[in-house]
Design a binder for these strands. Structure first.
Lengths: 196, 196
DNA sequence: CGCTACCCTTAAACTAGTTTAAGGGTATTT
DNA sequence: AAATACCCTTAAACTAGTTTAAGGGTAGCG
């Protein structure tokens, strides 16, 4: 009904402990909406990460670049997801990561200071972000496990199952980088999996 | 001074928001101390994980077993660390993991129900566990990155730097499984790195 | 329109890491 | 004291995934 720019974010919190009116107001006054173009960066290596960003629309990748110049995708974030280099944000140290828009996007950003304010004054945010992070931790652990115990083909197939929307939206190059293989090898894998 | 069995745990929380007397009492009445023998399990595949465990002494490994019967170490936990299959604990689903003592150990355990009680009645626990999980998330992300962008030798060397105590305490087999290589290959690596 | 920049594929040569097999050392159990 | 179970190493054959190179497709842009 309302077309408040926070509508999606407020709904997002309903999965956890839903926000009361005063929490919504406190949140609202501390959030900045930003439109981001394709290929624009939310974060670049060497900078300190300043924001926790909620993705309202569009899609991002977070990656590092190794000494040889190759990119390694750590995470994608699309609608209704969060993205940030938490380590850099918390410890205020330069990041080793990039966060870049793969598609034009709209994000809602909270600065570290404002996030701390919310944590201190409204314990519900501690709770909600604890659960959000726990879910991310669980997913990351599952992924690390897969990296150790599955072949590239198995990892590809389970990526497709888990993120069917992303599988169509993203170029194969990006998926290969997320799976930890070269685009050439991913191409071979896809071919073999068809011939079965 | 005090030899209360919770001394270490109370000190542990001093890194974050230190506990007040009433929080300590609430915690104390909800914690169970258990002595664990070498090779004894805190969790086995198929069981629902019931506890969040604080390691007071000794050392554990958390691992999965693949279809071929190989173990893959996801994490070690020694003194002053936490261990649990958070996914299984939260969602009350059967775990795919094992948690096994590598050395005789003493743990302080909190059940899910008691943890929920503490979260609801003392927001400080939400805060403290949020930060604990965030730190674990950061470390896990770093490790995944390394898995993608470094050779086994580089990963071995940074494991040694990061956990010098564990490097001496643990058999190489266990370290190999944590690094995601075979014990045979780790042995070759160590040899080559000496000859330089 | 033609140009440039991506993106995807194929294939051959290569390499990091596995598999299999064997032998020796040293705790732990009997 | 012998037996069993781990643990570590070496080495040769193998394989999953990389590297390099080349060609073709297509979308955005001057």
């Amino acid at each position: 009904m309302s077309d408040s720019p926070l509508e999606n974010l407020i709904d997002h919190f309903k999965q956890y402990l839903p926000l009361e009116e005063e929490e919504i107001l406190a949140l609202k006054s501390r959030i900045t909406e930003r439109k981001i173009k394709r290929r624009q960066f939310l974060l670049q290596e060497g900078d300190v990460c300043k924001y926790f960003s909620y993705v309202q629309s569009g899609c991002f990748k977070m990656y590092s670049v190794d000494e040889k110049g190759f990119e390694h995708n750590l995470a994608f974030a699309s609608e209704d997801d969060w993205i940030s280099d938490i380590g850099s944000l918390h410890k205020e140290i330069p990041s080793k990561l990039y966060i870049e828009a793969i598609e034009p996007a709209v994000v809602l950003q909270i600065s570290k200071g404002d996030l701390w304010y919310l944590y201190t004054n409204f314990p519900k945010f501690d709770r909600n972000f604890r659960v959000i992070i726990e879910d991310k931790f669980i997913a990351l652990q599952e992924r690390l496990l897969q990296t150790f115990s599955s072949t590239a083909l198995e990892r590809y197939e389970s990526f497709i199952k888990q993120y069917p929307q992303l599988a169509n939206r993203l170029p194969s190059t990006q998926i290969a980088s997320y799976l930890g293989v070269t685009p050439e090898f991913l191409s071979r894998i896809k071919n073999e999996s068809l011939r079965k």
